[in-house]
């Protein structure tokens, strides 16, 4: 048909071809992909901060709703004989350190932590894989520890250094939050689960509960809390183990 090679169809073909090439390059080019995905992450963070401005609380459930089975995910235990000895001694000689950009670094035993104001909450843990479970968590509000340590004005993030490794030759697990989520009233360092001391599978001696974000942000086996002004310098600098190794989103409020 003579109309096949009109000016219109040639222009259309050029335009459509260019658009398709750009789309393919967006997926293929790592820098472009990262810019696109990081841009969307910032947009999500800003939007969700807007709707969370009044700091609403996550739903809390009744005792009857606590899941009979709460899957153990990620690491099942921290490696090494030192950890085994800590478990056997009930973490008697272990200390949680809070340090970095603080006026008064802390070193607190499990007993010290239990003497502080305890917050108990029955909340839903939602894994990014798609499953969830409801559990009761008891622990110290992170905000209380940060206030005790006196966070300096330049601080922006809190990094959680953990005792576990996702693979035996790899780096220790770590995670991080910004101060907004760190000071959320339901963000706690839990030493108790379902009324009992936190089991090894769920991250003894201490695990983070951050109800504003998804499963992998809730670091287990927390050993050290470091207050920082930037996330570079830890792992690959993306703010957490999954973020570094699996391109997982650092802000996981989605």
């Amino acid at each position: 048909m003579s109309t096949l090679w009109t000016r219109r169809s040639v222009l259309t073909a050029v335009g459509a071809g260019a658009a398709a090439a750009l789309g393919i390059e967006l997926v293929r080019n790592e820098d472009w992909s990262r810019a696109f995905v990081d841009g969307a992450e910032r947009l999500t963070l800003r939007t969700q901060r807007l709707i969370l401005a009044k700091r609403p609380l996550a739903r809390e459930f009744s005792q009857a709703e606590v899941s009979a089975h709460f899957p153990v995910n990620g690491s099942r235990v921290a490696p090494g004989a030192d950890y085994q000895r800590m478990v056997e001694s009930g973490f008697r000689d272990w200390r949680l350190r809070v340090h970095g950009l603080v006026r008064q670094p802390l070193a607190l035993s499990l007993q010290d932590l239990k003497r502080l104001a305890m917050r108990s909450q029955i909340t839903m843990h939602a894994c990014d894989e798609g499953w969830n479970a409801i559990g009761q968590w008891g622990g110290v509000p992170l905000g209380l520890l940060l206030t005790m340590a006196g966070v300096v004005a330049s601080a922006k993030y809190v990094v959680f250094h953990c005792l576990d490794k996702k693979d035996s030759n790899g780096e220790f697990y770590y995670e991080s939050l910004d101060l907004f989520d760190a000071y959320h009233p339901q963000t706690i360092l839990a030493y108790e689960m379902n009324g009992k001391p936190l089991p090894v599978g769920h991250g003894a001696p201490l695990r983070l509960r951050v109800e504003t974000q998804i499963g992998y942000k809730n670091a287990k086996y927390v050993d050290r809390v470091e207050v920082v002004d930037r996330l570079t310098g830890f792992g690959k600098g993306r703010g957490g183990w999954w973020e570094d190794s699996d391109n997982a989103l650092w802000y996981a409020g989605q």
Binding site: V37, A40, E41, T44, D128, W242, N247, A248, L249, Q254
Partner: peptide
Amino acid sequence: WHFGGLRAWHFA
């Protein structure tokens, strides 16, 4: 392809 990366793409 990274599972975490696929989720990031999904939301973007």
